[in-house]
Amino acid sequence: MPKVGMPDIRKPQLVKATMAVIDRVGLHAASIALISKEAGVSTGIINHYFGGKHGLLEETMREILRQLSNTITTQLKALPVDAHQQRINAIINGNFEGYQAENQVAKTWLAFWSYSMHDEKLKRLQRVNEKRLLSHLKIELKSMLSPEQAELVAHGIASLIDGIWLRGTLNPEGIDANKAHAIINDYLDKQLTFYASNITSRNS
């Protein structure tokens, strides 16, 4: 975490510079020297406020997660609490559109995703993000399905989000948000129909 007292203007400046350097040379080659040059600051500022490269990388990851959380929360607040499928689509939107779909952000996400397997702090951030996504989905799904079914479908949607996002990030054409919506909603509709038909058959 950045030390208290760092000018607010510096944090987004350094986060943006970090993503630009990762985009250009990759995570492992993204040195403090390159990032400080990109941001137009001295290496001493990064070392003082972030304790070096790792602290800056962690703050960059936190900022990406904050943006994702804020986007989804804002969209959910704008929807009626009983518009469950619309709210699920808002959760999907937050992962595929706007800030998260920007090229530098997507490449940084991908770099952190692989790096987090070997770094406890980044792994913890990734787990927090995963739990938040599943929690958002289960809240909406539990109004339409049993708790056990909601759990299973939430994991299915989360897996589709991750898989489609990964394929889109590796694709030179980028992420196709419309195709992501179509695939995930097709899965959701089939799951809702399947569980509804099972209930009908048991009651008949």
Rank of each mutant, 00 (worst) to 15 (best):
M1R: 08
G5Q: 09
G5H: 10
P7Y: 12
P7C: 12
R10M: 14
K11T: 11
K11E: 15
P12R: 10
Q13P: 11
L14R: 01
V15M: 03
V15Y: 09
V15C: 01
T18S: 04
M19Y: 03
D23H: 05
L27Y: 03
H28K: 15
I32G: 10
I32Q: 08
I35P: 00
S36E: 06
E38P: 03
A39E: 09
V41C: 08
I45A: 14
I45V: 14
I46T: 06
I46N: 02
I46K: 07
H54Y: 10
L57C: 05
E58A: 10
E59D: 05
E59N: 01
M61Q: 11
E63R: 02
R66N: 11
R66Y: 15
Q67Y: 05
Q67P: 01
L68K: 10
S69E: 15
S69M: 10
N70I: 09
N70Q: 09
T74M: 09
L76C: 02
K77L: 12
D82H: 09
H84E: 11
H84R: 15
Q86P: 03
R87W: 07
N89L: 13
G94E: 02
E97Y: 12
G98V: 08
Y99W: 07
Y99A: 07
V105Y: 04
V105L: 07
K107V: 01
K107S: 04
K107A: 00
L110K: 02
L110N: 03
S114K: 10
M117I: 09
D119F: 12
E120I: 15
E120R: 15
R124W: 07
L125F: 06
Q126P: 02
R127P: 04
V128F: 11
L133F: 05
L133A: 04
L134W: 14
L134G: 00
S135C: 10
L137P: 02
L137V: 05
L141A: 02
K142E: 12
M144G: 02
P147S: 05
A150D: 04
V153N: 00
A154L: 00
H155S: 14
H155E: 15
A158M: 01
L160K: 09
I161Y: 04
I161T: 08
D162C: 03
W165L: 05
W165A: 00
L166H: 09
G168P: 00
G168T: 03
P172G: 00
P172V: 01
N178A: 13
K179G: 11
K179I: 11
K179W: 12
Y187Q: 04
Y187P: 03
Y187G: 00
L192R: 03
L192H: 06
T193R: 07
F194R: 14
I199R: 14
I199H: 12
S201P: 03
N203I: 12
